[in-house]
Nucleic acid binder design. Structure first.
Length: 566
RNA sequence: UGGCGGAUCGUCUAAUGGUAGGACUACGCCCUUUGGAGGCGUCUGUAGAGGUUCGACUCCUCUUCCGCCAGCCA
């Protein structure tokens, strides 16, 4: 349906990172090269916070005519999986970015990293520690108390080399030894207290199989990986700021290319959680239906929900880049998708909760085909024909037997316009005798008021959407709301975040009636259901026989606001 | 109370010694055959106290508050 799914926006706003790059370019640093990278660990699906980082890194590369690599930080085989690398690649592509042939893995560098480690041992800057993990922990000290030197810290270079070789050769069990850098056990920066470089892990790696049984720690792998790839600007989140002195030290001791690390504040959204660990819990506990559940803040979740790549890119642009902690209001994300879909989506009429109307003075066998505009924001999208007949459905919410103040819709004796059709008047209310529920309305129409040729000058306050009963097609509609009912689900230290799940986060409607235009809707197609919101065909569960639509986002609803404030 | 980093409308984000601006939200009004969209407008902000200066969000001093760091996770 959309042909321009993956075009780039222009007019990007500057930020402190771009200013640093501007200065570097002015000073002709790195031969005026700009090379970034996006370095996910394949241990979960990408979320909207990653989208910010992707847009930042790939966006900078594009705008400065540089390059951006995709590099998987796959240094921990026990958490990682190819399922995740595939989903990550799909998500980045869908967002509209291209790493060309630069798909790299930290595991590509395991041999080089091993050589670097040997070099550090030879320089007397690394040693094998044979303490247990508890002992190491206890000797580390606290932020205010210096750590103690490991009894193994004084081992000779020869002995270190010997044991490290045997570690690699698989002669020890998990946890028997680690390789540590000999840095500073009394540093006030905990990251510098002889950080571990290698641990023994007899685990199958999704790329290197069983070639290795020692795996580098992130802190040992990351900076050198950047260096090997010639990354000029290594952009990461704030929590790695404390690690930068370590990365700089490794680079200096190894005498290799020095990428500049720049830290920015990660994205947080209210009414959701953003850590992969917590999202994994929601998946594993069955609270949501997988990583791509439309309620998840994952890229695949938003995609299935009906968000466009453009809307997410535009959102990433709007939130900005800075160093202070932030919590973005989800309404900004919702604004971004409405803004995009308003311009491009096909309009259509769909009755979510049907109420039958019989137009008593309309001929029983007559069917009129009425002209409807496909998108008032874009004339080139043309028009379509919608069938109209004696029996139609309107939305239950569009009728009130005793109208509230400012209720402009249908009520007994009142007139409203049917979109693209006639003005009707409610003459009679039919109720279920046992429950008192309104089950049908008997109305009359004014033949002179046909849309487009109405010369009666009649003015009505409300316009309703509708579908012709006989021609209507059925569909399942999934109404999504925010996943959590609390703005900050992690804010209460006493209660588990999962207890704040919004019970209304998913409501399924089975009796919805759609205009026949929708019968050919394809997986992923997006529409505006007039007066309701934006919906898309579910990519997993929808079939031509059983259409399933997901509500991406509601339209802004000023009537709901009036009700809420009264 | 060790180190590092932060603090500008309700929420984000600009202003880099010279008119505190934009976006979202909220609230009005106009318009409307989507109570949509659009248009116009309003509210609200430099954490506090001193100092330097003709002039301070910006520079200096002190204070307060917030985040991160004690994984063989990333």
């Amino acid at each position: 349906m959309e042909s321009n799914e993956n075009t780039r926006e222009t007019n990007v706003q500057s930020n402190f990172i771009r200013e640093i790059i501007d200065e570097d370019l002015k000073a002709a640093k790195n031969a005026s090269r700009v090379h970034t990278r996006f370095p996910p660990e394949p241990n979960g699906y990408l979320h909207i916070g990653h989208a910010k980082s992707i847009c930042l890194n790939f966006g900078i590369a594009t705008d400065y005519k540089g390059l951006c690599n995709l590099r998987f930080d796959d240094t921990n085989p026990s958490a990682e999986d190819v399922e995740y690398v595939n989903s990550i690649k799909e998500d980045i592509k869908w967002l509209g970015f291209d790493w060309e042939d630069r798909e790299y893995y930290a595991s590509n560098y395991f041999d080089q990293l091993y050589e670097y480690a040997v070099k550090l041992i030879n320089k007397g800057k690394a040693y094998v520690d044979s303490s247990s993990s508890d002992e190491i922990k206890n000797m580390r000290g606290t932020p205010t108390v210096a750590g103690q030197l490991s009894p193994y810290r004084g081992r000779s270079i020869e002995e270190n080399l010997d044991i490290f070789t045997k570690m690699k050769a698989g002669e020890f069990k998990d946890g028997e030894h680690v390789l540590r850098s000999k840095f500073d056990m009394s540093s006030p920066n905990m990251n510098l207290r002889d950080p571990i470089m290698y641990r023994i892990r007899h685990a199958e790696h999704h790329r290197t199989g069983d070639k290795w049984c020692i795996y580098p720690m992130y802190d040992w792998a990351h900076g050198q990986s950047d260096s090997i790839e010639g990354i000029t600007h290594s952009i990461c989140t704030l929590e790695f700021e404390n690690h930068r002195p370590l990365y700089d030290w490794y680079i200096k001791e190894l005498e290799i290319f020095h990428p500049q690390q720049i830290e920015f504040a990660r994205l947080n959204l209210n009414y959701t959680v953003m850590s992969k660990r917590k999202l994994l819990q929601l998946v594993e506990d069955g609270i949501v239906n997988g990583w791509d559940d439309p309620r998840m803040p994952t890229i695949s979740g938003y995609r299935r929900r009906g968000y466009t790549p453009e809307s997410i890119r535009s959102f990433a642009e709007k939130v900005g880049v800075a160093k202070r902690d932030n919590v973005i209001d989800v309404s900004l994300l919702e604004f971004s998708i409405r803004e995009d879909l308003n311009k491009r989506s096909q309009r259509v009429m769909a009755v979510l909760n049907p109420l039958k109307i019989t137009i008593s003075n309309y001929p029983a066998d007559k069917v009129e085909m009425l002209e409807a505009v496909n998108n008032p924001e874009d004339e080139t999208m043309g028009k379509r024909l919608v069938p109209f007949s004696r029996e139609i459905y309107i939305e239950k919410d569009d009728f009130m037997e005793i109208p509230a103040k400012k209720f402009f819709r249908l009520s007994p004796g009142n007139e409203v316009r049917l979109r693209y059709a006639y003005i009707i008047k409610c003459e009679e209310v039919v109720k279920d005798p046992s429950t008192g529920e309104v089950i049908e309305l008997i109305c009359t129409y004014d033949v002179e008021t046909k849309s487009g040729s109405d010369k009666t000058g009649k003015k009505v306050k409300g316009t309703l959407h509708w579908v012709s009963a006989k021609e209507a097609i059925d569909a399942e509609i999934r109404l999504y709301e925010r996943l959590f009912s609390e703005e900050d689900p992690l804010g209460d230290k006493e209660k588990d975040f999962k207890s704040f799940i919004n019970p209304e986060s998913l409501r399924v409607l089975h009796n919805s009636k759609l205009e026949p235009f929708l019968k050919d809707a394809k997986s992923g197609d997006r529409f505006q259901f007039e007066r309701q919101g934006y919906f898309c065909v579910d990519s997993i569960d929808s079939t031509p026989e059983n259409l399933v639509f997901n509500r991406t986002v509601t339209l802004r609803d000023s009537w709901a606001k009036i009700q809420k404030n009264s």
